[in-house]
Design a protein around this nucleic acid. Structure first.
Lengths: 248, 248
DNA sequence: AAGTGGTCTAGACCACAAA
DNA sequence: TTGTGGTCTAGACCACTTG
């Protein structure tokens, strides 16, 4: 009898997806308010007429999306409305610009091999004195300044970087092709352009800029730290949260 | 014999997690370069000495993280490095502040019932002339100005808002309790404070500010549009891409 | 002590897409 | 046509945590 159910089902959306949506509906509609304790997995399995693992998959997805919290013995509970969570895709500048049909160029401003200063160490997360490559460069779009990049590369993790001049090849692109990153942390902030930055970006001093700061890991090892600084009128980050971006 | 293996395993990290990490290691180390076709699930199950579903769970997580692509018949293939994707949690200001043990207060600056102007219509995404509530308010932390909020509420979608004064109750909190949102879009940008903003935030004019703009939907209906403006030295957004957004 | 979620298995059927 | 991933099952053992 189970195999009949399975057969009938196969054409449509997966069963765990149906269950996921049904449960979500009850939560969103308020039938199951925050704090409500859901039936246990075996109970749900009975009421939906499926195996416990199928329920588990549906609940797992709801938990991942933050709608419920699951704890052993305590059971599964509906969460209070949660922080707005959103997925931000931070693209490589070059790819993004080229995808938009514009001309892209990278231009080195400064390149320096040095031992990590205290500030470097804090930014990159390595011990002071670690050998690193410090770069400053300008990303141009259709010839106009688009963003200034300040970058630190951990030479202990990426010794090959020592041999790269990075005159017209952006460090980001090169690193991406060399070192697969496994983890990244972003910080987004605003700042007033100082004189040097303003001059390089071709804007007035004190103009507001958007600053994206990124630390990248490969496993436990720090790869690079970068600050990308965009004039306020040239860049904004857009993120859209789709309720089900899981591949369900 | 399988149950013995299961018994020995139970204390440590889950088996699928071990497998996930082992496979990731091969990809990261370059042993399996982009384009490499992985062994099939049954083969991997044999080589890891586990059931196929366990392999499936590990591969599923790798696929979700974008390291591999899985297609029927074609098999599983290692991906090229992809854009930096990151998850940003944008918290309710009040909760965030209270969680940090600080005092929070909201203070209304302006409240106006009006028909949507062209600018309103564009911001909120409703036809011009739609009835809406326009609010301006100040979020204070420990008595000091923290952020200015400019908000539009679609009264067609949330008619109850008409009866709210929003003098000390922040519109965000109230809306969250009234209307479950299903979708949201964020834009993040930088701007220079104008005179009014500077005065309200207690900063110098022209200081850079971080601006978070959010549109919220409930299904197809526009609920609200809000601009939160933070002085540059008081707020930064942090996002960390956890390799395991899965509960692994 | 006991109920709950977390994990795993061995097997099954199917849809899909490449050969 | 056929190999591959996608899904599902019925049952099992365990760890955790609360009462």
């Amino acid at each position: 009898m189970k195999s009949i159910a399975a057969t009938l089902r196969q054409a449509a959306v997966p069963r765990y997806r149906e269950i996921h949506d049904a449960l979500q509906e009850r939560i969103i509609a308020g039938a199951w308010p925050p704090g409500y304790k859901l039936p246990s997995e075996p109970e749900l399995a009975r009421s939906f007429g499926c195996a416990r693992m199928t329920i588990s998959k549906a609940l797992g997805a709801l938990a991942e999306r933050g709608l419920i919290t699951r704890r052993r013995r305590a059971g599964t509970v509906v969460n209070s409305p949660r922080p707005q969570e959103t997925v931000l895709e931070i693209h490589d500048i070059e790819s993004e610009v080229l995808a938009g049909g514009h001309a892209y160029r990278y231009e080195r401003i400064k390149r320096e091999l040095r031992r990590a200063t205290a500030a470097d160490a804090a930014a990159l997360g390595v011990p002071p004195g670690t050998a690193l490559l410090a770069l400053r460069g300008l990303h141009r779009v259709d010839g106009r300044p688009h963003a200034v990049e300040e970058r630190l590369v951990n030479l202990q993790a990426v010794p090959e970087a020592r041999n790269q001049r990075f005159e017209t090849i952006s460090p980001g692109r090169w690193l991406l092709s060399q070192v697969p990153w496994t983890e990244a942390e972003h910080q987004i902030s605003a700042l007033n352009a100082d004189r040097e930055l303003a001059q390089q970006l071709g804007i007035e001093p004190h103009k507001a800029c958007l600053c994206i700061e990124r630390r990248t890991w490969q496993g436990p090892e720090r790869i690079t730290h970068v600050r990308l600084i965009y004039p306020c009128d040239q860049h904004r980050l857009v993120a859209r949260f789709q309720p089900s971006r899981l591949k369900m």
